[in-house]
Amino acid sequence: MTVIVSQLFTGVSIGAVLLLIALGLSLTFGQMGVINMAHGEFIMAGAYTVYVLQKVITGAGWSLLIALPIAFAVAGAMGVLLEFLLIRRLYARPLDTLLVTWGVSLILQQAARDIFGAPNVQTKAPDALTGNVRITDDLVLSNNRLFILGLAGLAVVALTLVLRFTSLGRRIRAVVQNRDLAAVSGIPTGRVDRLTFFIGSGLAGVAGVALTLLGPIGPTMGTNVIIDAFLVVVAGGIGHLKGSVIVAFALGTLQSLIEYSTTVSVAKVLVFVAIVAFLQWRPQGLFTLRTRSMA
């Protein structure tokens, strides 16, 4: 029994990481219908922010807390720059955007290699996050996983509040539902796009901060995690946060349970098969926006 519970906890914590990454991705995908392959490199930027901050600020606890807003701003600024310089010009060509942002991600990876060196670097985790919470003798929950779970929860709540109760959120939802109608209603769609990209990419930066607690920081760390996050977005559907939330935790749990009963490599294949099967049932993802558009 405890084995199952602790596997479930592992699954939920994998899901929390996936969710943090997928939230921003799903926001920008929903907004503009483009897949941003450089999202993984924004995660990397967030992680390296922690690394740089720890060179300046010695206390690991403070540097992590200060890193959260700074990583958000750094990754967000990179996102806005990308949107302004490239994605804006490619609105009607989602597939081309995917390839262009892949090129950007290659450039950013190499830039990280040139600035910080090719080998992975380590950051110090704060003392408060290195311990464990002991529920029973067999069931031990590690603090850093709990912290990430909390961070993911906070991100979901904050994003939901912004989308539901602020004027920016209302504009974002309007553009997602019908861009042309939003534009003729006087919503400055270009500016809304930029702000959406800022928030979405900023969340990638926050995810990067969270990933420093789980492993080393390296130029290719983004590529390693991004594919699963894409699958979350595809299976979750766009325009609704709850789709991403449910699918992220479901995928995390599924992966952890299959890994437990078989191996990591078999789990990857089975999760892929599960997603293709899921798309047979829900080709547009778990939740979809009802529109009259045929595209």
Binding site: V34, I35, L95, L98, I227, F230, L231, V234, V276, L279
Partner: peptide, 15 residues
């Protein structure tokens, strides 16, 4: 569209 692209890529990763 992008959904298909992501799926084909995920298959490559999985294999």
């Amino acid at each position: 569209g992008a959904y298909f692209a992501i799926l084909s890529q995920a298959l490559a990763a999985a294999l």
